[in-house]
Design a protein around this nucleic acid. Structure first.
Lengths: 172, 172
DNA sequence: CTATCTGCAAAAAGTTTGCAAGTGG
DNA sequence: CCACTTGCAAACTTTTTGCAGATAG
C-alpha cells in the first residue's frame, strides 16, 4: 500500500479531452439529442476539478449561455448519471442520515432502498496509517462505501421505483 | 482480504447498551444538559440499525414524547456529531455534486471547505473482486472517501467557519 | 436563578414538476 | 415535422433560524 497518489491535473485534462471528443458520438448512439445546453454542461463538468454542484455548473454554463435554467442543469446532470456520462458523488444526498456507531467502520449501501449496513474492514482502516498526508491534504480518517443491492431489492427487480427505504419504522 | 463480515446485530446491541450507560456521564463531563429529548434521541439513534434520517429519529422519539419538534431533533443530532456522540453518514449532504470522471476512483475530501480531489487506489478496487456478495447484499462497486484538511484550510485554522468551498468559480 | 434548551412558525436552500414554446435530427 | 428539450414559475422537501417560554443544574 505504498504510493498513494492523487490523480493529477495532467491526467484529468487528457481524460477530459478524450471524453469530450467522443461525447457527441455516444449521445447519437444512445439516441439522446445533442443540444448546446448538454454540450455546455458536459464541458463545464469535465473542466471542473472540484466535483461541482448543480449551482456551480449552472454558473459556469451561464458565462456563455446566460439564459440556461437551473432546472435544466439539474435534469441534464441526472440524465448524465443515468446513462453513465457522469457520476453523482453524493449518492445518499436527499436527506441527512446519522449513525450512533462512532467506532471506525464502513458501510454497505443498497442503492435502491438505501438501507445502510455497517461493516468492519481493518485492512482499509490501516490503509492510511503510513500516510499522514497526501499532496496538500492532511488525512484524518476514511470510510469505504460499498454500493450494493440488498436481498429484498434483488428479488423486487427493477419495476418498483423506491427512493426511500421500505420503511421499517417499527424497528427503531 | 478474506473474511469480509457485516457487523452483526449482537455486537450492535452490546455496543448500544454500553454507549447508553455512559451517555449521561459524558454529557456532564462536556457540560451539555441532559434533557429528556436528548436521551430519547440518543436512544432512538442507538436502537436503529438503519442509519436513520432526522425524520425517522423524530418519528421514533415521538412515540413516547409526541410533542418533540423536528427542529429540535435536527439541532440535537448536529450537536451530537459535533461532540462525537454520533456520526453523520452523509457528510457531503447539503448539495448534490457530480463528477465527470466515470473511471473507478476514490475521493479525498476537505471536511472544512468541502473541496474534493480524485485519487486512484487499485488495492481498494480489488478489495471486492473475490467477494460478489456479503450477507444479503450483492456488491456492485465501492468508493473510499478520505476525510482530510486541505492546505488552505490547515493554514486558515478553525476561526473562519466555512461550509461551502472558498468558491474558485474562475476555474471551471 | 440563569444560561441553556425547546417548540413553533416562518424563512431558506435545494430540487422537482407542469406546461407552453423552442429545436434537433 | 414531431418527439424530445428547455425556460419559467410554482410546488415540494429538507434544513435552518428567531423568538418567547420552559427547564436543567
Amino acid at each position: 500500500m505504498r504510493e498513494l497518489r492523487l490523480v493529477d491535473r495532467r491526467w484529468r485534462e487528457r481524460y477530459s479531452v478524450q471524453r469530450l471528443g467522443e461525447f457527441v458520438a455516444r449521445c447519437r448512439r444512445r439516441g439522446i439529442a445533442v443540444t448546446p445546453q448538454r454540450l455546455a454542461v458536459i464541458g463545464a463538468l469535465l473542466a471542473s476539478e472540484n466535483h461541482p454542484s448543480t449551482d456551480e455548473i449552472c454558473a459556469a454554463v451561464r458565462r456563455r449561455h446566460p439564459h440556461v435554467s437551473l432546472a435544466t442543469v439539474h435534469r441534464i446532470l441526472e440524465q448524465f448519471c443515468a446513462v453513465g456520462e457522469a457520476r453523482k458523488v453524493t449518492l445518499l444526498h436527499d436527506v441527512a442520515r446519522y449513525d450512533g456507531n462512532v467506532e471506525p467502520h464502513h458501510h454497505v449501501l443498497c442503492v435502491r432502498c438505501r438501507r445502510v449496513h455497517d461493516i468492519e474492514i481493518p485492512e482499509v482502516d490501516k490503509l492510511l496509517e503510513g500516510t499522514p498526508s497526501l499532496g496538500q491534504f492532511a488525512l484524518l480518517r476514511c470510510s469505504l462505501e460499498i454500493d450494493a443491492l440488498c436481498g429484498r431489492c434483488q428479488r423486487a427487480g427493477k419495476h418498483t421505483n423506491v427512493r426511500t427505504a421500505p420503511t421499517v419504522r417499527g424497528e427503531t
